[in-house]
């Protein structure tokens, strides 16, 4: 594979992300990483469910009294939409339209940053109410689970931004196509985890 090989939409393969041996290896390695991430989040979810509304101290806070759905609903819609915009980015990657891909990735990053901003606002709000990390077993489990997801969002954003900057002048080639593809897979995975967070933590929390 020659990094400097130039492509046109006509010579661009159907599946540039797995057209090279390096791309294939990255692809299988990345799915293995997602499997490991799934186990990580599964254990954090189990911890949260076991410690939900448990003390010994700080029992004045319960999931039913603490969480507010409008904010969570807005965060959910924003993250879900950012999942779609990264699908658009990969659509343009497959069409070998570098500028459109970069633009859609930019929108994805903006939506992701908005989501993260709302999450920081939410955590800040809880801390001001007195629901800090060390408040109770419940608060620790909550912050570790949702915070780990937030850290993944931050990492995903940094990943997208780094790829966009590093490849701004290179354009799309067989070397960086797998990189963009995997970053977008990671972003979808973050959304998959959030689907369970809004269902298990927030919705099931509000109904007690």
């Amino acid at each position: 594979m020659d990094i400097n090989q130039k492509y046109t939409p006509q010579s661009w393969p159907d599946h540039p992300e797995t057209a090279t041996m390096e791309g294939k290896n990255k692809f299988i390695g990345f799915w293995l990483l997602l499997a490991a991430e799934t186990v990580t989040f599964a254990s954090l979810f189990a911890t949260y469910l076991a410690l939900k509304d448990k003390g010994p101290s700080g029992m004045e806070f319960s999931a039913a009294g603490l969480f507010e759905l409008p904010l969570v609903f807005a965060m959910t819609m924003i993250l879900l939409t950012s999942s779609l915009t990264s699908v658009y980015a990969m659509y343009h990657m497959k069409n070998h339209n570098f500028k459109a891909m970069q633009a859609w990735l930019g929108i994805t990053v903006l939506l992701g940053a908005t989501f993260l901003g709302l999450e920081i606002y939410e955590f800040n709000h809880y801390v001001h109410l007195g629901f800090g990390f060390t408040n109770s077993a419940f608060s620790s489990a909550f912050y570790v689970l949702v915070g780990t997801h937030g850290a993944h969002v931050l990492f995903g954003l940094s990943w997208f931004i780094a790829l966009m900057l590093r490849n701004a002048k290179r354009g799309l080639n067989m070397y960086n196509a797998p990189k963009f593809y995997l970053a977008s897979l990671y972003w979808h995975f973050i959304d998959v985890v959030w689907v369970f967070i809004f269902t298990v933590v927030y919705l099931m929390g509000v109904i007690g």
Binding site: M1, D2, Q5, Y7, T8, Q10, S11, P13, A19, T20, M21, E22, M174
Partner: peptide
């Protein structure tokens, strides 16, 4: 990096 990709220009 040694794996060359066959470049196929579509009709």
């Amino acid at each position: 990096m040694a794996h060359d990709t066959h470049i196929h220009v579509r009709s």
